[in-house]
Design a protein around this nucleic acid. Sequence first.
DNA 1: ATTTTTTTCTAACGTCTGTTAGAATTATTC
DNA 2: GAATAATTCTAACAGACGTTAGAAAAAAAT
Lengths: 206, 206
Amino acid sequence: MTKAASTKARLLDTAARLFRENGYAAVSLRGIAAAEKMQGGSLYYHFKSKEEIIADVLNIGIEIVHKAVVEALAALPASASHETRIRTAMKAHLRALLEHSDYTSANVRIFGQAPKSVQKANLKVRRAYEDCWSDILQAAQKDGAIAQNTDLATLRLMLIGAMNATLEWFDPKRGSADQLADHFANNLLNGVLNKSGQNKPGKTRT
Amino acid sequence: MTKAASTKARLLDTAARLFRENGYAAVSLRGIAAAEKMQGGSLYYHFKSKEEIIADVLNIGIEIVHKAVVEALAALPASASHETRIRTAMKAHLRALLEHSDYTSANVRIFGQAPKSVQKANLKVRRAYEDCWSDILQAAQKDGAIAQNTDLATLRLMLIGAMNATLEWFDPKRGSADQLADHFANNLLNGVLNKSGQNKPGKTRT
DNA sequence: ATTTTTTTCTAACGTCTGTTAGAATTATTC
DNA sequence: GAATAATTCTAACAGACGTTAGAAAAAAAT
């Protein structure tokens, strides 16, 4: 690895971390540079613009989580049930988001704040990842594991939305990403209504 | 209503709308003022600072959705099931977020980007709304409508997180907030797994 | 219609941002 | 070790921001 490549990677890592920690507006070029003991103008040797840095962070963020999900699924036996596949994908997503990848976290945190042109440039990799999920859910519905009348686009958005929202409140001291994925999967896959335990208000079930 | 009160309300409405549409960083005092055919410095007659404007928008945003949920529940008959109460609350939340309140939308969109001191000032009303949901879910679990082993804090965060994430992609041309609430409620309350339809991958259910 | 009060405008300030071009320094090559 | 290339520093720019104080205009009161 050349010095330039090494420096560029360091700068991107730092940018991802700062964006994750502080959000979009609070991270300046001077801030990223300072965290690496450099001056703001130096970043222009490595990147064309601030937008290029942001675009890179956003793209890498999706690629990392996509790869994590694909690899987790590939490691499953061919006989794995659709439920297992969904659970596995959820675990992989939440691990990437909450435990392993500043880039993925940064993407979730700042995508909606990035300039429109940068958002647009991120759409291709986003769509690929969305398709990955759609494939998982469609296969399950095709085989009857998910009811035919369930709208899969809505389900996917609900699922990803709920998982990404965890970034705002997840606390590793209160449990791991895996445990959280289990809770979420149980709630969403099995439903939270206790069909046999349904009582009228005011009645305590013994 | 005095002129000052009227102008202040107009400015807040405009601020909420601009924050909702454009996010935090892209909305300046000069921008809010210009939308009302005024100059940026004039806003200091009505507000102490930009932070005060943001704080007001955030607080009103939560108060509106909280009120909507409470009123929708109050309009239910006392005999309404827990499922109905949860569904009703979800509908009210999504209506406020997606159809009625720029303030609520703005809160969801910019809360995470606001200065820490402003976020902190919003916590009281946020906690009150969270407690409202916790009450709904706790009552359901107490009566057995929700299984005892379901972690209600996680469920609440999952539910609110999923609903708030809809702000990024909801399109009224593809269905109403009520329809979306139905989809979400069905998915979460009943679960998406087809228990009797579970098959191995590769098998088509007839 | 005049006076008083309210409301808005305006010029300016200090600070911060992304960016540029060339100088200075560091690293690499011979 | 000298020459060359790579990398970073630096001063500066233009622009944007939130904010302030006092002037000007508008509205309200008499």
